[in-house]
Amino acid sequence: MKRLRNHLIGIDQGDTVLFSDFEDGGEMWTGRGQRERRRRVSFSEPFRTEPSVHVSISMWDVDTASALRADAMAETITKDGFDLVFRTWGDTRIARVRLAWMAMGELRQVDDWDLY
């Protein structure tokens, strides 16, 4: 469990279209090639420390002729941002994906000093 040390709690959120491969025959739609997409997300202002980040699929357009496989997550979380990551595998064909995210953590206080 993440314990927050101050009363200045920040929540930042967004909704990002990660890819739209059906329009141009991209790899996610054809089911061949690179099956991972990632995008760097910057917070609207830095957190005091690394926040907790929640990711969910807010829209996906898929071919239902095969099993639906998906892995959506936040990686490389820093106080300034994180990598939004979506993966699929096997014969799953995905036309497009939009991911929603929410980050929650401590904000800097006026009394915070950077000594080193």
Results as ranks from 00 to 15, higher is better:
residue 75 E to W: 00
residue 6 N to H: 08
residue 9 I to K: 11
residue 83 D to N: 06
residue 86 F to H: 04
residue 86 F to M: 06
residue 40 R to Y: 08
residue 110 V to Y: 00
residue 6 N to M: 00
residue 46 P to G: 03
residue 88 T to F: 08
residue 101 W to S: 01
residue 25 G to F: 03
residue 33 G to H: 07
residue 102 M to E: 09
residue 65 A to M: 09
residue 90 G to F: 11
residue 50 E to F: 01
residue 23 E to T: 12
residue 90 G to N: 13
residue 83 D to G: 02
residue 91 D to L: 15
residue 110 V to N: 03
residue 36 E to R: 15
residue 4 L to S: 10
residue 72 A to S: 13
residue 103 A to Q: 04
residue 28 M to E: 01
residue 68 L to W: 15
residue 81 G to N: 05
residue 82 F to R: 00
residue 70 A to K: 07
residue 49 T to A: 13
residue 74 A to D: 08
residue 84 L to S: 05
residue 48 R to E: 12
residue 22 F to M: 10
residue 94 I to K: 06
residue 88 T to D: 05
residue 5 R to V: 09
residue 89 W to C: 02
residue 116 Y to R: 07
residue 80 D to P: 05
residue 74 A to I: 07
residue 36 E to Y: 13
residue 78 T to G: 02
residue 114 D to H: 05
residue 43 F to G: 00
residue 53 V to S: 00
residue 84 L to P: 02
residue 77 I to Q: 01
residue 111 D to F: 08
residue 26 G to L: 02
residue 14 G to T: 06
residue 116 Y to E: 08
residue 55 V to C: 12
residue 89 W to F: 06
residue 49 T to L: 12
residue 78 T to Y: 01
residue 14 G to L: 02
residue 20 S to M: 10
residue 106 E to Y: 00
residue 89 W to S: 09
residue 8 L to I: 01
residue 73 M to T: 09
residue 56 S to Q: 10
residue 74 A to R: 01
residue 7 H to D: 11
residue 4 L to F: 13
residue 60 W to N: 07
residue 93 R to Y: 04
residue 93 R to C: 05
residue 35 R to N: 06
residue 99 L to D: 02
residue 86 F to S: 00
residue 59 M to I: 07
residue 61 D to P: 01
residue 67 A to F: 15
residue 92 T to I: 10
residue 37 R to V: 08
residue 9 I to W: 02
residue 94 I to H: 01
residue 97 V to R: 04
residue 57 I to E: 06
residue 37 R to Y: 12
residue 24 D to L: 13
residue 103 A to W: 04
residue 92 T to E: 15
residue 73 M to A: 12
residue 83 D to A: 05
